[in-house]
Nucleic acid binder design. Structure first.
Lengths: 180, 180
DNA sequence: TCCGTCATGTAAATGGTTACATGATTCG
DNA sequence: CGAATCATGTAACCATTTACATGACGGA
């Protein structure tokens, strides 16, 4: 029965904050959830069509001709709560960097250094992005019910990024001490 | 040209340590790379057939009738190095727990607490698993070229799990202080 | 006028899991 | 013998990305 419930959940949840076009939806997901979620147009538009057909979202004419601003219906909000209550499924992990590092003796210490240094700078960039997001979120009004939850997910990213940096520093030191 | 290079890489890399059957391959990946990689039979067997056809691995009769022990050929080792040098691609993130927490005001603080508590105990279990892996790896002979690299990836898991636990503790405290 | 952005969608290919079918071997 | 495990594979399905086609609108 569960036909791509993951995407449905993300779409319904995003629309619960604010009605949007499919285009804006993708942008909002990229900007606000980018650290832990992603959707492509090829997922979003079919999902919106399906949800529309099921009466879970309604499409109103937007400013531009041909643009559809989607909003949650009552049924859509009920479905959202239902999907939210399902236990989260995590996609099987696939970390190409760690896979390569595990077999690092094939690659040599120098190439591994590069791998880890890249991961470090990615974490640094993530930290920077999160700092911006944190400032923006902290500027939201105190009474906004979403605010504390947004800050929690930002904090999750920060913890994870800081851990990645600490690990990278430790690992770069180890690699420097390796022969080869 | 790249036809499922991710699986090919994992398979060739694993076979570079030791010749194995497809069954053992899946098990080895699950046990040793489980924290950051996964492959299913539906991937492994077609991959082995393809690699065999391309002359990258050779199949010898195993102990049991019908079992095929695969080992790297010279061409396979060359291909492995080639794949290792490609820049690692990371699968787009999809963290169902954080998605739900971001929209936590739909769910309520109590349900969010559960979500975070589950994540915490998963991280704890991971830490436990990594402790076992660390002991086993540290027991390997000092001169084993893979040993330092294995320890690096174990350390990555440990950093990540500890960060998850610290975040969960902080977040549980925040959730307790929330009304609703 | 032309470019960049906003906007909607489709088609093809890929990547991957799950479930199933089949059978040998080992061990209690 | 019967159950668990080892072992190989296939088929169906699902999820997802990528690339493409199309066009409206705003501003330099």
């Amino acid at each position: 029965m569960p036909r791509s419930t993951q995407t449905d959940l993300a779409v319904l949840a995003a629309l619960s904050i604010e009605p949007m076009t499919g285009y804006a939806l993708r942008d909002a997901i990229r900007v606000h959830l980018g650290a832990f979620w992603s959707e492509s147009f090829g997922q979003i538009y079919p999902a919106l069509a399906r949800l529309r057909a099921d009466g879970l979202v309604a499409a109103d004419e937007g400013d531009r001709s041909g643009s559809n601003v989607h909003s949650l219906t009552a049924a859509g909000r009920a479905r959202l709560v239902e999907l939210m209550r399902e236990t989260p499924t995590s996609t099987p992990p696939r970390n190409g960097m760690l896979l390569r590092l595990f077999f690092g003796s094939v690659l040599g210490a120098a190439a591994c250094r590069e791998l880890v240094a890249d991961a470090r700078s990615q974490a640094l960039a993530m930290l920077d992005h999160l700092a911006t997001a944190r400032r923006a979120t902290e500027a939201e009004p105190d009474h906004l019910p979403q605010r504390p939850y947004w800050l929690m997910t930002i904090s999750a990213g920060e913890h994870s990024a800081r851990a990645a940096i600490a690990w990278a520093d430790e690992t770069l030191a180890t690699l420097d001490a390796l022969p080869d």
